[in-house]
């Protein structure tokens, strides 16, 4: 029987890990939407590709034998997803950006396509991925899955770095400028299309990394895209569009609520709760976000 304090610690770590995951997924999505008012429904598949990428890398034996190598492999997978995102941007996203309807439908169709490819290749058997750090880790008096710790640490580092880049560099300022006032940004000589392309790449890499890191602790299935997409959408709506800090806070908040709800009320209630939060957030903040074509 766990002591309450131990249980609390466990829950805390899980909250942070879950929140970090959601933050990694949502931040890229928020940036892309801010940078170009582009709703990239394909974002969920970046997560999926990262997860399957980790699986493929492991299955092919490139995963390496120690934690450092496996982490490196995850980063490489993420970079691959980032490059894929850039290609996707030029092939599908940019041509569709003019019409909101086309944006939504091409994103959906692309999600289905990727899901079908993996389904055809791997069938219905779920893929399992080796964790980066196997086993558990003792923090204080608590046993926690080491993988969750890795997720939390990596996410924290990345998010801090991203925050630094956005606030302290000129390029980061340009990204924020495009998000706030695209017209004004153009007048400064900033090219919004290039900014958007780079932002999409970054978003793909972050979501891919999230997928690669989450894969060991989850069942990897072809329909993971909708899970990631709904989380990203929920977090961005709750956190407020255009506010990176808000997105991060919403991500950790959502993660915490889900973990606690699962612990207290069971999985069904937690799932329902997570979705109800989404619906509630949408109802309370129904700002006209997307201009109709």
């Amino acid at each position: 029987m766990h002591e309450p304090v131990t249980r609390l610690f466990e829950l805390l770590t899980l909250c942070v890990a879950r929140g970090s995951l959601y933050a990694l997924i949502a931040v890229g999505f928020a940036l892309v939407f801010g940078a170009g008012r582009v709703l990239n429904l394909f974002h969920g598949s970046f997560f999926l590709l990262g997860a399957y990428g980790a699986y493929v890398v492991g299955a092919l034996g490139f995963a390496g034998s120690n934690a450092g190598e496996r982490l490196l492999a995850a980063v490489l997978v993420a970079s691959g997803v980032g490059i894929f995102a850039l290609i996707y941007y030029y092939l599908v996203l940019r041509p569709s950006a003019a019409s909101w309807l086309r944006l939504v439908t091409t994103g959906l169709a692309a999600n289905l396509l990727v899901a079908e490819v993996f389904r055809a290749y791997y069938g219905t058997r779920s893929a399992s991925v080796q964790p980066i750090v196997a086993g558990t880790v003792r923090i204080g008096s608590v046993n926690v899955l080491a993988q969750e710790v890795v997720v939390a640490v990596v996410a924290a580092v990345l998010l801090a770095a991203l925050g630094w880049v956005l606030t302290r560099t000129l390029w980061g300022a340009a990204v924020r400028a495009v998000a706030q006032d695209t017209f004004g940004a153009r007048l400064m000589g900033i090219n919004p299309a290039v900014t958007l392309a780079l932002t999409v790449t970054l978003a793909g890499a972050l979501a891919g990394l999230a997928g690669a890191l989450a894969a060991p602790t989850r069942i990897v299935r072809p329909d993971m895209w909708s899970f990631a997409l709904l989380k990203a959408l929920t977090v961005v709506i709750v956190g407020g569009i255009g506010s990176l800090r808000g997105t991060c806070m919403a991500a950790y908040g959502l993660g915490a609520i889900e973990v606690i709800a699962t612990a207290w009320l069971g999985e069904t209630a937690a799932e329902l709760g997570g979705v109800l939060i989404a619906v509630a957030a949408l109802t309370i903040r129904p700002r006209g976000v997307v201009a109709d074509a």
Partner: peptide, 16 residues
């Protein structure tokens, strides 16, 4: 809810 928000709510309800 209109546009994007409508799509998201329908998606959320369906997932629920």
């Amino acid at each position: 809810h209109r546009g994007l928000y409508f799509s998201m709510v329908t998606m959320a309800v369906q997932i629920a």
